[in-house]
Amino acid sequence: MSTIDQDSAVTGGTGGNAPTGGAPAAGRRTGTGLVKRGLATQLRGGVVMDVVTPEQAVVAEDAGAAAVMALERVPADIRRDGGVARMSDPALIEAIKAAVSIPVMAKARIGHFAEARVLESLGVDYIDESEVLTPADDDHHIDKWPFTVPFVCGANNLGEALRRISEGAALIRSKGEAGTGDVKEAVRHLRQILGDIRKVTQADQAERYGWAKQLQAPIDLVNEVAETSELPVPLFCAGGIATPSDAALVMHLGAQAVFVGSGIFKSSDPPRFARAIVEATTHYADYSIVAKVSRGLGEAMRGEESGAVATRLSERGW
Protein backbone atom coordinates (compact mmCIF):
# COMPACT_ATOMS: atom_id res chain seq x y z
CA MET A 1 0.00 0.00 0.00
CA SER A 2 1.73 3.08 -1.27
CA THR A 3 0.09 5.53 1.15
CA ILE A 4 1.78 3.74 4.03
CA ASP A 5 5.19 3.98 2.42
CA GLN A 6 4.62 7.65 1.75
CA ASP A 7 3.64 8.28 5.34
CA SER A 8 6.58 6.31 6.58
CA ALA A 9 8.85 8.36 4.38
CA VAL A 10 7.39 11.58 5.77
CA THR A 11 8.11 10.48 9.31
CA GLY A 12 11.57 9.14 8.65
CA GLY A 13 10.78 5.59 7.57
CA THR A 14 9.55 4.03 10.77
CA GLY A 15 8.18 1.16 8.75
CA GLY A 16 11.64 -0.39 8.63
CA ASN A 17 11.51 -0.94 12.39
CA ALA A 18 8.14 -2.61 12.38
CA PRO A 19 7.95 -6.39 12.18
CA THR A 20 8.50 -7.25 8.55
CA GLY A 21 6.31 -9.29 6.22
CA GLY A 22 6.62 -13.04 6.01
CA ALA A 23 4.25 -14.98 8.23
CA PRO A 24 1.91 -12.40 9.72
CA ALA A 25 1.74 -14.38 12.93
CA ALA A 26 5.52 -14.28 13.60
CA GLY A 27 6.25 -13.19 17.16
CA ARG A 28 2.58 -12.94 17.97
CA ARG A 29 1.04 -14.86 20.80
CA THR A 30 -2.69 -15.58 20.74
CA GLY A 31 -4.86 -16.96 23.54
CA THR A 32 -2.60 -15.82 26.39
CA GLY A 33 -4.04 -14.95 29.78
CA LEU A 34 -3.49 -11.28 29.05
CA VAL A 35 -5.26 -11.49 25.70
CA LYS A 36 -8.16 -13.45 27.23
CA ARG A 37 -8.62 -11.11 30.18
CA GLY A 38 -8.03 -8.17 27.86
CA LEU A 39 -11.38 -8.58 26.12
CA ALA A 40 -13.22 -8.79 29.46
CA THR A 41 -11.48 -5.58 30.48
CA GLN A 42 -12.81 -3.87 27.35
CA LEU A 43 -16.36 -4.91 28.25
CA ARG A 44 -16.24 -3.16 31.62
CA GLY A 45 -18.99 -0.69 32.28
CA GLY A 46 -21.03 -2.39 29.58
CA VAL A 47 -24.03 -4.66 29.21
CA VAL A 48 -23.92 -8.16 27.70
CA MET A 49 -27.38 -9.05 26.39
CA ASP A 50 -28.94 -12.45 25.73
CA VAL A 51 -30.35 -12.68 22.21
CA VAL A 52 -32.08 -15.57 20.46
CA THR A 53 -32.29 -14.24 16.88
CA PRO A 54 -30.12 -12.08 14.60
CA GLU A 55 -32.87 -9.43 14.74
CA GLN A 56 -32.61 -9.27 18.54
CA ALA A 57 -28.83 -9.06 18.22
CA VAL A 58 -29.23 -5.96 16.03
CA VAL A 59 -31.66 -4.43 18.55
CA ALA A 60 -29.09 -5.07 21.29
CA GLU A 61 -26.22 -3.59 19.30
CA ASP A 62 -28.28 -0.54 18.33
CA ALA A 63 -29.12 -0.02 22.00
CA GLY A 64 -25.42 0.01 22.96
CA ALA A 65 -24.78 -3.55 24.14
CA ALA A 66 -21.05 -4.16 24.63
CA ALA A 67 -21.54 -7.80 23.57
CA VAL A 68 -24.32 -10.28 22.94
CA MET A 69 -24.85 -13.82 24.21
CA ALA A 70 -26.21 -15.96 21.39
CA LEU A 71 -28.59 -18.69 22.54
CA GLU A 72 -31.74 -20.53 21.47
CA ARG A 73 -33.84 -19.72 24.52
CA VAL A 74 -33.43 -17.13 27.24
CA PRO A 75 -33.22 -18.58 30.77
CA ALA A 76 -36.86 -17.76 31.57
CA ASP A 77 -37.94 -19.95 28.64
CA ILE A 78 -35.48 -22.70 29.55
CA ARG A 79 -37.16 -22.76 32.97
CA ARG A 80 -40.65 -22.80 31.44
CA ASP A 81 -39.86 -25.50 28.86
CA GLY A 82 -37.84 -27.85 31.04
CA GLY A 83 -35.93 -30.69 29.36
CA VAL A 84 -32.22 -30.76 28.67
CA ALA A 85 -30.75 -27.38 27.68
CA ARG A 86 -27.74 -27.66 25.36
CA MET A 87 -25.39 -25.57 23.25
CA SER A 88 -27.22 -23.59 20.55
CA ASP A 89 -27.37 -24.58 16.88
CA PRO A 90 -24.18 -23.39 15.13
CA ALA A 91 -26.33 -21.95 12.33
CA LEU A 92 -28.01 -19.61 14.83
CA ILE A 93 -24.69 -18.56 16.32
CA GLU A 94 -23.25 -17.90 12.86
CA ALA A 95 -26.30 -15.86 11.86
CA ILE A 96 -25.96 -13.74 15.00
CA LYS A 97 -22.22 -13.32 14.41
CA ALA A 98 -22.94 -12.12 10.89
CA ALA A 99 -25.56 -9.63 12.08
CA VAL A 100 -23.46 -7.59 14.51
CA SER A 101 -19.92 -6.19 14.86
CA ILE A 102 -19.73 -6.40 18.67
CA PRO A 103 -18.34 -9.50 20.44
CA VAL A 104 -20.55 -12.60 20.39
CA MET A 105 -20.56 -15.02 23.30
CA ALA A 106 -22.20 -18.45 23.43
CA LYS A 107 -22.91 -20.99 26.16
CA ALA A 108 -21.53 -24.49 26.60
CA ARG A 109 -22.71 -26.93 29.26
CA ILE A 110 -20.61 -27.24 32.41
CA GLY A 111 -17.89 -29.82 31.72
CA HIS A 112 -18.83 -30.21 28.05
CA PHE A 113 -15.47 -29.51 26.44
CA ALA A 114 -16.66 -30.85 23.08
CA GLU A 115 -19.40 -28.21 22.90
CA ALA A 116 -16.77 -25.66 23.88
CA ARG A 117 -14.44 -26.79 21.08
CA VAL A 118 -17.32 -26.52 18.61
CA LEU A 119 -18.02 -22.97 19.78
CA GLU A 120 -14.33 -22.12 19.52
CA SER A 121 -14.24 -23.42 15.95
CA LEU A 122 -17.19 -21.14 15.13
CA GLY A 123 -15.10 -18.14 16.19
CA VAL A 124 -17.25 -16.99 19.11
CA ASP A 125 -15.45 -14.35 21.15
CA TYR A 126 -16.21 -15.71 24.63
CA ILE A 127 -17.58 -19.04 25.86
CA ASP A 128 -19.87 -19.03 28.88
CA GLU A 129 -19.53 -22.37 30.70
CA SER A 130 -22.99 -21.90 32.09
CA GLU A 131 -25.21 -23.35 34.78
CA VAL A 132 -28.17 -22.14 32.75
CA LEU A 133 -27.63 -25.15 30.49
CA THR A 134 -27.95 -28.68 31.86
CA PRO A 135 -24.55 -29.71 33.24
CA ALA A 136 -22.69 -32.44 31.32
CA ASP A 137 -20.35 -33.33 34.18
CA ASP A 138 -21.23 -33.25 37.87
CA ASP A 139 -17.64 -33.33 39.07
CA HIS A 140 -15.48 -31.50 36.55
CA HIS A 141 -15.61 -28.17 34.86
CA ILE A 142 -13.84 -27.71 31.52
CA ASP A 143 -10.05 -27.40 31.63
CA LYS A 144 -10.06 -23.99 30.01
CA TRP A 145 -6.31 -23.37 29.71
CA PRO A 146 -5.73 -25.20 26.40
CA PHE A 147 -8.33 -23.09 24.58
CA THR A 148 -7.50 -19.98 22.55
CA VAL A 149 -10.96 -18.55 23.14
CA PRO A 150 -11.56 -17.09 26.63
CA PHE A 151 -14.16 -18.41 29.08
CA VAL A 152 -16.52 -16.76 31.50
CA CYS A 153 -17.87 -18.84 34.39
CA GLY A 154 -20.45 -18.24 37.09
CA ALA A 155 -19.72 -18.21 40.82
CA ASN A 156 -21.79 -17.88 44.00
CA ASN A 157 -18.88 -17.18 46.28
CA LEU A 158 -15.16 -16.43 46.33
CA GLY A 159 -14.07 -20.08 46.55
CA GLU A 160 -16.05 -21.01 43.46
CA ALA A 161 -14.71 -17.96 41.61
CA LEU A 162 -11.10 -18.90 42.41
CA ARG A 163 -11.64 -22.54 41.44
CA ARG A 164 -12.93 -21.41 38.05
CA ILE A 165 -9.96 -19.05 37.65
CA SER A 166 -7.60 -21.92 38.55
CA GLU A 167 -9.18 -23.87 35.66
CA GLY A 168 -8.51 -20.97 33.28
CA ALA A 169 -11.62 -18.75 33.38
CA ALA A 170 -10.70 -15.22 32.23
CA LEU A 171 -13.88 -13.58 33.53
CA ILE A 172 -16.19 -14.35 36.45
CA ARG A 173 -19.85 -13.44 36.68
CA SER A 174 -21.78 -13.76 39.89
CA LYS A 175 -24.52 -16.28 39.07
CA GLY A 176 -27.68 -14.84 40.53
CA GLU A 177 -30.79 -16.84 39.70
CA ALA A 178 -31.10 -16.70 35.92
CA GLY A 179 -34.52 -16.31 34.32
CA THR A 180 -36.31 -15.06 37.43
CA GLY A 181 -36.08 -11.29 37.01
CA ASP A 182 -35.45 -11.25 40.77
CA VAL A 183 -32.19 -9.49 41.61
CA LYS A 184 -31.95 -10.89 45.15
CA GLU A 185 -29.64 -13.82 44.37
CA ALA A 186 -27.40 -11.62 42.22
CA VAL A 187 -27.01 -9.30 45.19
CA ARG A 188 -26.37 -12.20 47.54
CA HIS A 189 -23.65 -13.70 45.32
CA LEU A 190 -21.95 -10.39 44.62
CA ARG A 191 -21.93 -9.58 48.32
CA GLN A 192 -20.53 -13.00 49.13
CA ILE A 193 -17.69 -12.68 46.63
CA LEU A 194 -16.82 -9.07 47.41
CA GLY A 195 -17.37 -9.41 51.16
CA ASP A 196 -14.98 -12.36 51.34
CA ILE A 197 -12.44 -10.45 49.24
CA ARG A 198 -12.57 -7.63 51.78
CA LYS A 199 -12.02 -10.14 54.62
CA VAL A 200 -9.16 -11.94 52.86
CA THR A 201 -7.46 -8.58 52.36
CA GLN A 202 -7.37 -8.21 56.15
CA ALA A 203 -5.88 -11.68 56.78
CA ASP A 204 -2.27 -12.16 57.81
CA GLN A 205 -0.11 -14.76 56.04
CA ALA A 206 -1.03 -17.64 58.39
CA GLU A 207 -4.71 -16.83 58.08
CA ARG A 208 -4.47 -16.90 54.29
CA TYR A 209 -3.77 -20.65 54.46
CA GLY A 210 -6.91 -20.94 56.55
CA TRP A 211 -8.82 -19.02 53.90
CA ALA A 212 -7.45 -21.27 51.16
CA LYS A 213 -8.75 -24.31 53.08
CA GLN A 214 -12.08 -22.73 53.85
CA LEU A 215 -12.57 -21.51 50.28
CA GLN A 216 -11.17 -24.75 48.83
CA ALA A 217 -9.13 -22.61 46.49
CA PRO A 218 -5.41 -22.50 45.58
CA ILE A 219 -3.24 -20.52 48.01
CA ASP A 220 -1.56 -18.62 45.16
CA LEU A 221 -4.88 -17.15 44.12
CA VAL A 222 -5.83 -16.39 47.73
CA ASN A 223 -2.51 -14.53 48.07
CA GLU A 224 -3.19 -12.61 44.89
CA VAL A 225 -6.64 -11.57 46.13
CA ALA A 226 -5.16 -10.54 49.49
CA GLU A 227 -2.53 -8.38 47.80
CA THR A 228 -4.68 -6.76 45.12
CA SER A 229 -8.08 -6.61 46.90
CA GLU A 230 -9.78 -7.96 43.82
CA LEU A 231 -10.17 -11.07 41.71
CA PRO A 232 -7.32 -11.77 39.27
CA VAL A 233 -9.88 -11.41 36.45
CA PRO A 234 -12.80 -8.99 35.96
CA LEU A 235 -16.01 -9.59 37.92
CA PHE A 236 -19.36 -9.04 36.21
CA CYS A 237 -22.86 -9.68 37.53
CA ALA A 238 -25.61 -11.88 36.06
CA GLY A 239 -28.90 -13.51 36.95
CA GLY A 240 -32.08 -11.55 37.65
CA ILE A 241 -31.25 -8.04 36.43
CA ALA A 242 -34.48 -6.66 34.96
CA THR A 243 -34.49 -2.86 35.35
CA PRO A 244 -32.10 0.11 35.06
CA SER A 245 -32.13 0.40 38.86
CA ASP A 246 -31.14 -3.27 39.18
CA ALA A 247 -28.12 -2.55 36.98
CA ALA A 248 -27.23 0.53 39.05
CA LEU A 249 -27.56 -1.50 42.25
CA VAL A 250 -25.13 -4.24 41.23
CA MET A 251 -22.68 -1.76 39.69
CA HIS A 252 -22.68 0.13 42.96
CA LEU A 253 -22.08 -3.07 44.88
CA GLY A 254 -18.92 -3.63 42.83
CA ALA A 255 -19.85 -5.43 39.61
CA GLN A 256 -17.73 -4.17 36.70
CA ALA A 257 -20.39 -4.88 34.06
CA VAL A 258 -23.72 -6.67 33.80
CA PHE A 259 -25.21 -9.59 31.91
CA VAL A 260 -28.90 -9.20 31.20
CA GLY A 261 -30.60 -12.42 30.11
CA SER A 262 -34.36 -12.53 30.05
CA GLY A 263 -34.74 -8.97 31.38
CA ILE A 264 -34.62 -7.22 28.01
CA PHE A 265 -36.52 -9.35 25.54
CA LYS A 266 -39.14 -10.39 28.13
CA SER A 267 -39.95 -6.75 28.85
CA SER A 268 -42.75 -4.78 27.17
CA ASP A 269 -40.37 -2.63 25.11
CA PRO A 270 -37.02 -4.37 24.49
CA PRO A 271 -35.22 -1.57 22.57
CA ARG A 272 -36.05 0.96 25.28
CA PHE A 273 -35.23 -1.39 28.15
CA ALA A 274 -31.94 -2.27 26.48
CA ARG A 275 -31.03 1.36 26.00
CA ALA A 276 -32.10 2.31 29.52
CA ILE A 277 -30.08 -0.49 31.14
CA VAL A 278 -27.01 0.52 29.08
CA GLU A 279 -27.31 4.12 30.28
CA ALA A 280 -27.96 3.12 33.89
CA THR A 281 -24.87 0.87 33.85
CA THR A 282 -22.67 3.75 32.71
CA HIS A 283 -24.25 6.40 34.94
CA TYR A 284 -24.97 4.14 37.91
CA ALA A 285 -23.70 6.71 40.40
CA ASP A 286 -25.87 9.52 38.96
CA TYR A 287 -29.39 8.74 40.10
CA SER A 288 -30.98 11.59 38.19
CA ILE A 289 -29.90 9.81 35.00
CA VAL A 290 -31.13 6.44 36.29
CA ALA A 291 -34.46 8.14 37.07
CA LYS A 292 -34.59 9.75 33.64
CA VAL A 293 -34.07 6.47 31.77
CA SER A 294 -36.55 4.65 34.02
CA ARG A 295 -39.38 7.12 33.48
CA GLY A 296 -42.32 5.67 31.53
CA LEU A 297 -40.27 2.64 30.56
CA GLY A 298 -43.17 0.15 30.53
CA GLU A 299 -43.44 -3.29 32.06
CA ALA A 300 -40.33 -5.11 33.18
CA MET A 301 -40.31 -8.89 32.73
CA ARG A 302 -42.92 -10.35 35.04
CA GLY A 303 -40.50 -12.77 36.64
CA GLU A 304 -40.90 -14.97 39.67
CA GLU A 305 -39.47 -14.77 43.12
CA SER A 306 -36.13 -16.54 43.18
CA GLY A 307 -37.06 -18.48 46.35
CA ALA A 308 -40.13 -19.95 44.65
CA VAL A 309 -38.49 -21.52 41.57
CA ALA A 310 -38.46 -25.29 41.20
CA THR A 311 -34.92 -25.50 39.80
CA ARG A 312 -32.16 -23.47 41.41
CA LEU A 313 -29.78 -23.00 38.46
CA SER A 314 -27.27 -21.26 40.72
CA GLU A 315 -26.71 -24.50 42.65
CA ARG A 316 -25.28 -26.17 39.54
CA GLY A 317 -21.51 -26.37 39.38
CA TRP A 318 -19.17 -26.29 42.33
Binding site: P19, A25, R29, T30, T32, L34, G123, V124, D125
Partner: peptide
Protein backbone atom coordinates in the same frame (compact mmCIF):
# COMPACT_ATOMS: atom_id res chain seq x y z
CA UNK B 1 -12.29 -12.27 16.03
CA UNK B 2 -11.11 -12.72 19.61
CA UNK B 3 -9.21 -15.92 18.77
CA UNK B 4 -7.03 -13.74 16.50
CA UNK B 5 -6.31 -11.21 19.25
CA UNK B 6 -2.64 -11.28 20.20
CA UNK B 7 0.29 -9.77 22.06
CA UNK B 8 3.61 -8.88 20.42
CA UNK B 9 6.53 -6.50 20.73
CA UNK B 10 6.15 -3.57 18.36
CA UNK B 11 8.80 -1.06 17.36
CA UNK B 12 7.48 2.49 17.75
CA UNK B 13 9.32 5.36 16.11
Amino acid sequence: RQRDSFEADIAVS
